[in-house]
Design a protein around this nucleic acid. Structure first.
Length: 253
DNA sequence: AAACTTTCCAACCGCGCTTCC
DNA sequence: TGGAAGCGCGGTTGGAAAGTT
C-alpha cells in the first residue's frame, strides 16, 4: 500500500495563485495562525492542496519576507553558508532573515553559481575550477572556449559537467588556439596558494574569505586586506573555531 | 514587428523524517 | 513496535518576461 496523496487532487486548483486566494489564505492564517496545513484549505474555503497553501504562505505571503534584490553582503553570506552546508537551503535561509529557502535556491541557481564560475570557483565544491577540472575537464574548457570564440564569459555549468566526446578530439581543438590561456585560475588561487609568503622563510595561511576571493570581506581574518581584523585565531564564523559545525545552533526558519 | 531563445522564479512533486496512535 | 498521517526539504518544471536575431 502506497502513501496516500496529500490531498484530493481532483478538486484542487493548481498553478498561479489569484489575488482572492491569497487574501483568503492570509485572512485565515491571521485569524487562526499557521499549522495543520492539510485541513487549512477546507477551513479557509480554498480549493488548494495543503502543501500548496504552505508553500504560498512561506514563500510569498508571510509578512516578514524581505522582497527585492539580494545585497552583496547577502550574496557573500550565501556563498559562505553554501560552502559549509551544501544545498541545505532551509538552513541557509535560517541565517538570512526575510529570505526563504526557495528564494535562495533560485537565486543560487540563477546568479551566484554563475558568479562563482566567473571567479573560477566550482559552485558545487567551492574549490578552484582548475583543481576539480584537472582530471577530466580542463581540456574541455579550452575546447569549448575555442569553439565558441570565447563569446561568453558566463560559463555554462552543463559544459563543465559534460565531458567532450573524446580526449583526442579535444586536444586537437586546443592546438588550434595555442595562444589562448584558458586555464581558469582567475580567483581565488589554487589550493597550494592558500598560503602567502609573509617573510622569506615563513608562510601564513589564508583565511576562508581570501580563499573564496573575498579579501575585502569584513570577515577576513588574515592580514591580506586592510581594515579591522579578528584575532589571530580567526573569525568565528558560525562558531567554527573548533572546526566542527554544530548544526543545532543553526536556527530553522 | 515578429519569431525565437534565454532567463528567472513561483509552484509542483516526491521522498524522508517525525509524530502520533 | 509498526504503520499511517503530516510536515518540511530539495530537485525539477512550466510559463511569463526579457533579450536577441
Amino acid at each position: 500500500m502506497g502513501r496516500s496523496p496529500c490531498c484530493e487532487k481532483a478538486h484542487t486548483n493548481k498553478g498561479a495563485w489569484t489575488k482572492e486566494e491569497d487574501d483568503r489564505l492570509v485572512a485565515y492564517i491571521k485569524a487562526h495562525g499557521e499549522g495543520c496545513w492539510r485541513s487549512l484549505p477546507k477551513a479557509a474555503g480554498l480549493l488548494r492542496c495543503g502543501k500548496s497553501c504552505r508553500l504560498r504562505w512561506i514563500n510569498y505571503l508571510r509578512p516578514d519576507l524581505k522582497r527585492g534584490n539580494f545585497s552583496d553582503d547577502e550574496d557573500e553570506l550565501i556563498i559562505k553558508l553554501h560552502s559549509l552546508l551544501g544545498n541545505k537551503w532551509s538552513l541557509i535561509a535560517g541565517r538570512l532573515p526575510g529570505r526563504t529557502d526557495n528564494e535562495i535556491k533560485n537565486y543560487w541557481n540563477t546568479h551566484i553559481r554563475r558568479k562563482l564560475l566567473n571567479r573560477g570557483i566550482d559552485p558545487a565544491t567551492h574549490r578552484p575550477l582548475s583543481e576539480s577540472a584537472q582530471a577530466t575537464t580542463t581540456i574541455s574548457f579550452a575546447a569549448a572556449a575555442c569553439s565558441r570564440d570565447q563569446e561568453d564569459s558566463k560559463t555554462d555549468v552543463k559544459s563543465l559537467a559534460t565531458p567532450p566526446p573524446t580526449v583526442a578530439v579535444v586536444k586537437k581543438e586546443v592546438e588550434k588556439c595555442p595562444d589562448l590561456n584558458l586555464e581558469l585560475r582567475i580567483s581565488p588561487p589554487y589550493q597550494e596558494q592558500f598560503y602567502r609568503e609573509t617573510t622569506p622563510s615563513g608562510k601564513e595561511e589564508l583565511c576562508f574569505d581570501c580563499r573564496l576571493g573575498l579579501e575585502s570581506s569584513r570577515d577576513c581574518s588574515c592580514s591580506i586586506s586592510s581594515g579591522p581584523k579578528e584575532s589571530a585565531a580567526g573569525f568565528d564564523f558560525l562558531g567554527l573555531k573548533s572546526g566542527v559545525l554544530d548544526y543545532r545552533s543553526l536556527e530553522m526558519k
